[in-house]
Simulated scan of single mutants.
Amino acid sequence: MNPFTEKVIELIQTIPSGTVRSYGDIAKEAGNPRGARQVARILHSSSKKYNLPWHRVVNAQHQVSLPAGEARDTQILRLRQEGVNVTNGGKIVY
């Protein structure tokens, strides 16, 4: 596993319950400010293997990025269960 991937996994594992981080913020902190799409791929391929809190990662506009469907509904539900204020459209409200 390359160092960027290791750092991304570590950062996602440490996102506290009730908070969110953007793909871009994670990429920047892991050493690649232009690596948001890589973060998305890592999250997609490694969530189950590393038990990552995938639902705490959102896009730069602080919205759920997943298309309408079961996974999007699950992400919104999990965030709400952790106390995150999420609109029905998937926008995080502070």
Rank of each mutant, 00 (worst) to 15 (best):
T87D: 04
G83D: 08
R78Q: 13
T87V: 09
Q13D: 07
R72F: 05
Q13T: 11
T5N: 02
L66H: 14
A27T: 07
A60K: 14
A71F: 10
N2H: 03
P53S: 02
A71S: 08
Y23I: 10
Y94S: 12
W54N: 01
N51S: 13
Q63M: 15
T74M: 08
N51Q: 15
D73Y: 07
L77I: 00
P67D: 04
G18K: 03
E6K: 15
P33R: 08
N2V: 00
L52V: 08
R34T: 11
N32V: 07
Q75H: 10
Y23E: 08
R56F: 04
S45Q: 09
D73H: 02
I76N: 00
I42G: 02
N32T: 03
A71Q: 15
G89V: 09
Q63L: 03
G31T: 04
R78A: 12
A36T: 00
H44M: 10
I42Y: 01
R37I: 00
R41C: 00
S65G: 14
K91A: 15
G18A: 03
I42R: 01
W54P: 03
T14G: 09
P3D: 14
R34C: 00
R34D: 12
A30G: 05
P67Y: 09
D73C: 00
G83I: 10
E82N: 11
A36Y: 12
G69R: 13
A30F: 09
P67K: 13
H55Y: 15
Y50V: 08
A30C: 02
Q13S: 15
E6T: 09
T19V: 00
P33L: 11
I42L: 08
Q81T: 12
Q13I: 01
K49I: 09
A71G: 02
V64I: 14
G89M: 05
E10V: 02
N51V: 00
A40Q: 14
V84G: 06
L79W: 06
V20N: 04
S65A: 12
P3A: 06
M1N: 12
D25Q: 14
S22P: 03
T14A: 08
L79Q: 09
N88Y: 05
K91V: 06
L11H: 04
K28M: 04
V84S: 08
R34V: 07
D73L: 09
Y50G: 01
G18E: 08
A27W: 00
K7E: 15
V84N: 06
V8M: 03
A60F: 07
R21S: 11
R78W: 05
V8R: 05
E70P: 01
S22E: 06
E82A: 06
I12P: 03
N32G: 02
P33I: 05
G83S: 07
N59S: 08
P3K: 04
V64M: 01
R37E: 09
G24K: 14
E6G: 05
W54S: 04
N88R: 04
T87H: 01
A40H: 10
I76D: 06
N88A: 14
I12S: 07
A27H: 00
A68N: 04
Q38N: 13
G24H: 10
L77V: 00
H44K: 14
R21A: 11
S22Q: 13
S45F: 11
N32I: 07
P53G: 08
R56L: 01
A68D: 15
S45H: 09
Q61S: 15
A40T: 02
V86S: 10
R72W: 04
S47W: 15
N51G: 04
L79N: 12
D25L: 03
V64D: 01
V84D: 05
L43R: 09
Q81F: 03
